[in-house]
Design a protein around this nucleic acid. Structure first.
Length: 541
RNA sequence: AGGGGUAUCGCCAAGCGGUAAGGCACAAGACUUUGACUCUUGCAUGCGGUAGUUCGAAUCUACCUACCCCUGCCA
């Protein structure tokens, strides 16, 4: 069957299959375990896994842990959890740190070929001699050491005979190259730091530019998909793969795509780190965070996030996606799947003066009106109710179809009621509404233009509902170390609300009728049950 | 002696020489025990600009312009 490409990456894969005669496609998702995965990583995960899947291939999960200073086991655990939650299965799980011996051998090979050398220049000196964007660099005075000397020195580096930063292993390429990445890039640096998996076994660590292409090649990766900022690294990627004699064709091919940017959301690990470490948020899974664990806690279905990644597409132009595309995906998914319950976010008491105080009735409410023959559940009705504060207007403006003085409204699944009296507190605020049930509305031909939700005071359960807003103040952008000044103190608003008992039994997302989509926060340790707002309903007129 | 990329509707994005897909957003209407959902309809004589090649150009060529990335012993 002919495969129709849906983006430029798939087109490139098809070309490679035809030209190189590839019989199996292998991709990899290569996170560095130095933070939690966020929605931006999710795009990459989808591209890596779905591209391979489309061609009947496989995807490896590889932790790119070549910098012991930043990495931690907590992150490798969370990353695996998040990928599984998204619904992807890796073929194998690897660690760049497991390749250290192999990479060391590759380095030796390059030294023997005269293509790598030990350099004694300090970091400052290396930077100074690299040249600039418009000027060529200068060759290191250590560039032409003999193979034997390089081999001995490199062995000494590994043996721990030098302090951090005293020596590096560099590739001998071209100090005058127009691409700065090709000006004798560093392959290994000395770092006497304990690695979270390797312990103190090593004191030299490979750089990304050296480790990544060779790790790809070792795993038989056919397509190494990464983001646009690595375009300039591709010539170097190819150089290592083509020059290391331990690597045989077919070589892996690097293809770059634009990373995800979402308007009003900062998707940088260092910003997220700062938020967590500075206690501006309640951990990596705080519902205001763009991490996958936070979105999960907030009730975003994994399928909705995958749908989002599919809708935004794959291309090479730097784009800024509007958050409402994600929200539309979530709304669409929840609308079709979520169990609906009634809840009152900001309550206003209603007393039904002509309904017996000792009477109750059971009203049937559909679990999801968009599903035909969906199960129904009972909600208890009584003479004292809560309705939503915003469903009543003492001085209605425009086309307000809900409750107003002397007006009528339908209580969903129950009666039509009429507002007879507005009872006020001493300070003039509204205390409660005295209303009467119109039992014979049908006979009288009384129709209500509006329908509102309600809850019996005695039969509902107090809870907290939380709404989230942008973490940064309006118009502010992230700046390192500026969080105190630019953080929005109102990024979280909590209400004292009520919910029907049925809601507590629900484990999946649910819709609070007309108020939006909320989900029970299973992670919360608050005394009262907590419901987080996932997405609001589409704006009504 | 700079290099590498990208420009198609408000936002994403297809298109690969034969006369501008789709989604989100928006607007109008229908339906509605929530004003949501659903449904219908509308929404680029135009593809960064200017020349050119061609019967025919978003697609090819040339020259401009704008924006993004690159001078970590980070990834």
């Amino acid at each position: 069957m002919e495969i129709i490409p849906s983006n430029f990456i798939e087109q490139a894969v098809i070309n490679d299959i035809n030209e190189k005669g590839l019989n199996k496609i292998i991709t990899r998702f290569p996170p560095e375990p130095n933070g939690y995965l966020h929605i931006g990583h999710c795009k990459a995960v989808c591209i890596d896994f779905l591209t391979a899947q489309k061609f009947g291939g496989i995807t490896n999960l590889r932790f790119d842990d070549t910098n012991p200073a930043k990495e931690d086991e907590e992150y490798v655990r969370s990353i695996q959890e998040d990928i599984k939650w998204l619904g992807f299965n890796w073929e194998a799980i690897y660690y760049a740190s497991d390749y250290y011996d192999f990479l060391y051998d590759c380095a030796i090979d390059l030294i023997k070929q005269g293509k790598a050398y030990v350099c004694d220049l300090s970091a400052d000196e290396v930077n100074a001699m690299r040249g600039t964007l418009t000027e060529a660099g200068k060759e290191s005075p250590y560039r032409n050491r003999s193979v034997e000397e390089n081999l001995a020195l490199f062995a000494d580096m590994r043996a721990g005979k030098f302090e951090d930063g005293v020596k590096t292993l560099r590739a001998k390429i071209d100090m005058a190259h127009s691409n700065i990445n090709m000006r004798d890039p560093i392959m290994y640096r000395i770092l006497h730091t304990t690695h979270y998996r390797q312990g103190d076994k090593w004191c030299i660590y490979p750089m990304y530019d050296f480790a990544h292409p060779l790790s790809d090649a070792k795993e038989g990766i056919t397509h190494s998909l990464c983001s646009l900022e690595f375009e300039d690294h591709r010539p170097l990627y190819n150089w290592f793969v083509e020059n290391c004699s331990l690597i045989k064709p077919p070589y892996p091919r690097q293809i770059e795509f634009a990373r995800l940017n979402i308007d009003g959301t900062v998707l940088s690990k260092r910003y997220l780190q700062e938020l967590v470490k500075g206690n501006y948020v309640d951990g990596w899974d705080d519902p205001r965070m763009p991490t996958l664990s936070a979105l999960r806690r907030k009730g975003y279905p994994a399928d909705a996030i995958r749908e989002f990644c599919s809708r935004i597409g794959v291309a090479k132009s730097n784009s800024l996606v509007q958050p409402h595309i994600l929200e539309a995906c979530v709304r669409e998914n929840l609308n079709a799947n979520a169990t609906r319950v009634m809840a009152v976010l900001q309550p206003l008491k209603v007393v039904l003066t002509n309904y017996p105080a000792d009477k109750t009735e059971q009203c049937l409410i559909s679990n999801n009106p968009t599903i035909e023959n969906a199960p129904k559940h009972e909600v208890t009705f009584s003479n004292e109710l809560y309705i939503e504060q915003e469903d009543f207007m003492e001085f209605p403006e425009g086309k307000f179809h809900r409750l107003k003085p002397d007006g009528v409204v339908r209580l969903m699944g129950a009666y039509i009621i009429k507002c007879d009296e507005v009872v006020k507190n001493e300070d003039g605020s509204i205390k409660q509404l005295n209303c009467s049930v119109i039992y014979d509305a049908q006979e009288q031909g009384i129709k209500a233009k509006g329908t509102i939700h309600w809850l019996s005071c005695k039969h509902s359960i107090p809870c907290k509902t939380r709404k989230f807003f942008n973490l940064l103040k309006e118009g502010e952008t992230y700046q390192k170390g500026m969080l105190d000044k630019i953080i929005n103190p109102n990024s979280l608003v909590e209400y004292n609300s009520y919910i029907e008992p049925f809601a507590l039994e629900q484990t999946n997302a649910m819709q609070f009728v007309r108020m939006g989509y909320y989900v029970k926060d299973k992670t919360s340790t608050a005394d009262l049950p907590v419901f987080n707002e996932t997405v609001g309903l589409k704006d009504s007129k």
